[in-house]
Amino acid sequence: MRRTVFAVSLALLLPTAAPAFAHPGHGEQPDSPVVTAPAVYGNGWKALAPIGSGPRQEHSVAALGGKVYVIGGIYRADGVTTTTNRVEVYDTRHNTWAEVAPLPVAMNHPNVASVGGRIYVLGGLSGGASWQALGDSFVYEPRSDRWTRLPSMPSELRRGSAAIGVRGTKIYLAGGMRTLTPGPGGLHDTVATVSSYDVVTGRWSVLPSLPEARDHVGGAVVGSVFYVLGGRDKGQVNVRDTVYALDLRNGRWTERAPMPTARGGIATAVIGTKIYTFGGEGNPAPDSHSIFDDTEAYDVARNRWQRLAPMAVPRHGTAAVAVGNKIYIPGGGTAAGAQPVDVNDAFRP
């Protein structure tokens, strides 16, 4: 098994990757330094060892055995944004990083979930000047450090940046996008599609569509309900505060208490009956670089929201996962578009 351990941030390594393109990601910011306020840790936030290989954004995460897997995404080097197939693992007990077998296909915005001790990747986005939906799907076995190809997603269900939730042997996907063309006026092909994949039978099913299309959206299953939180519709400034809930027993959508802050590009994680939401993109406030620092928790039992301590390093295009009573948030972007960072921190409610 190939495994390299990192305790500190290293110079950016160049992995096997999808074709690169020389514009700044989502097209809102040039490749220039972004001045941000110093990180303020405390109030439940803790700084951790930064991502071993360097900055990463528009990736996904999964937790297995006390470790956080960071899968795919984008990095920038010499003004060029590149989609990566790199997979790195953060050990929450030792505060170290390791590199494991890469994805067979480079992806950003991959749809990722862990089920039964394995990690599933069900499509995502990739490409050069325009990111397109991929149907490529894989399962990762940590004991053998090996990815196995699964049958591709049906063509009508392919998208990246979907809300994800797991119940039993099924992975649920809601919304997402089929095309993301960076640059002013670029196409953001947001969808309302909802589907599920059974990891035992290998079968895809189509569920009732979202009431409205969403991408860069939060998702979680709590009990028998699939929650889809915030997100955006056809562009990062078109952010939403909606919370939709799909009862998986009867297939009916209802609307719940809205988010205090409308946001897209958020990260979500679940502890108990609460869904925690972090950061996001589309902030119109001056000097915000379009980024939110908000941390808000939704109590599904009470249908209520609670504001919590803001992120020490505000960012979007990241992902979150709970391990025990802490939520881990590696990487993300600190300005609109592609401004990836190697920040890795944890929040304890």
Rank of each mutant, 00 (worst) to 15 (best):
D247R: 04
G73D: 12
S152I: 05
I266P: 03
T16K: 12
T84G: 06
V228L: 11
P340S: 00
T268F: 00
H216D: 10
A301S: 09
S205D: 10
S144M: 11
I164H: 00
G324F: 12
A309K: 02
L13Q: 15
L10Y: 12
L103H: 02
R348S: 08
Y90I: 04
G54P: 12
L13N: 14
I275Q: 03
V221G: 14
A338D: 11
M311V: 09
T261N: 09
G168W: 15
R146W: 06
G160C: 04
G116C: 00
G235L: 05
Y197F: 06
F347T: 02
R167H: 08
W45I: 15
F6I: 03
V34D: 11
L187C: 08
D91G: 11
A17M: 11
L12I: 14
W253R: 15
T295D: 12
P110S: 07
A162L: 03
E58M: 10
V70H: 09
P314C: 15
A285W: 05
P38A: 08
R348L: 09
V70C: 06
V321L: 01
R304N: 08
R214H: 14
G44M: 13
F138W: 01
T261S: 11
N238T: 01
V237Y: 04
R252H: 11
R315W: 06
N95F: 04
D293F: 09
G123I: 01
G42Y: 03
P151S: 03
G160S: 08
G186D: 14
D342Q: 07
A192I: 05
R203H: 05
G168T: 07
L12A: 14
M1G: 14
V222N: 11
Q236P: 10
T169N: 14
L10K: 15
E212A: 10
G272D: 00
S60G: 12
G218E: 15
R56D: 02
T273W: 01
